[in-house]
Design a protein around this nucleic acid. Sequence first.
DNA 1: TGGCTATATAACCGTATAGATATATTGTTT
DNA 2: AAACAATATATCTATACGGTTATATAGCCA
Lengths: 114, 114
Amino acid sequence: MKSSLDAIFSALSDPTRRAILGRLAHGKATVAELADPFELSQPAISKHLKVLEQAGLIRSGREATSRPRELEPDALKKISDWIGDYRRFWDQSFDRLDGYLSKVQGYEDDKSGD
Amino acid sequence: MKSSLDAIFSALSDPTRRAILGRLAHGKATVAELADPFELSQPAISKHLKVLEQAGLIRSGREATSRPRELEPDALKKISDWIGDYRRFWDQSFDRLDGYLSKVQGYEDDKSGD
DNA sequence: TGGCTATATAACCGTATAGATATATTGTTT
DNA sequence: AAACAATATATCTATACGGTTATATAGCCA
């Protein structure tokens, strides 16, 4: 489970994977159920699920012969926190900008937070 | 300026590009200034900037011979909104889960919001 | 055990991406 | 106009990615 910002953002850049997450927001689902809405092969879906799992966005269970997936929201929280550093850019007036800039230190901050 | 979720998430999946955004959170900067912290060629940085701009995350200006970049937070807001659909997974109790699930409809919702 | 079901893995292919170096473009300065 | 400075574009290379089909694995059931 990498769960780095690299892996998380990369996983989310694919619309199929975002759709899978959307489906999992409704609750646990099997691979077959997750594959159903798409015109993709089962192995393609399994690959997407692997990417999501390695990014820490979902987890696999085991129920008889199936391996149901469910959301693992920690990774989403991670990028939500990252975006939080920039939230003031659209949420608030630019007057207070200088006050918070010490929080956003670029490369090093980004790596340490990974 | 694509500004689709695909393009935004993809742009953010690279640590160099996130570092550039971090730098731009401090304020406008030239290409040379943005390139300075990295051991990358100038064309490599220009490419990264192009990716960020096409995702709608930054904009280019023109000042004499330089083309300073600055943040364009709309795209970040876009993914912040997307993540908002999942925020309850870590922010709140799971009791209210069923109540909001109608908001998260997966593939079609994702595409319409693009 | 043999066969069925659900899922994973392997091998392969075409396209995209990140980097490099070399060159072109555009504005400034003399 | 010529030279310089800042940046962009072209071309190339290596690797990653998303898809496919074929095959392997694991658990259940007759």
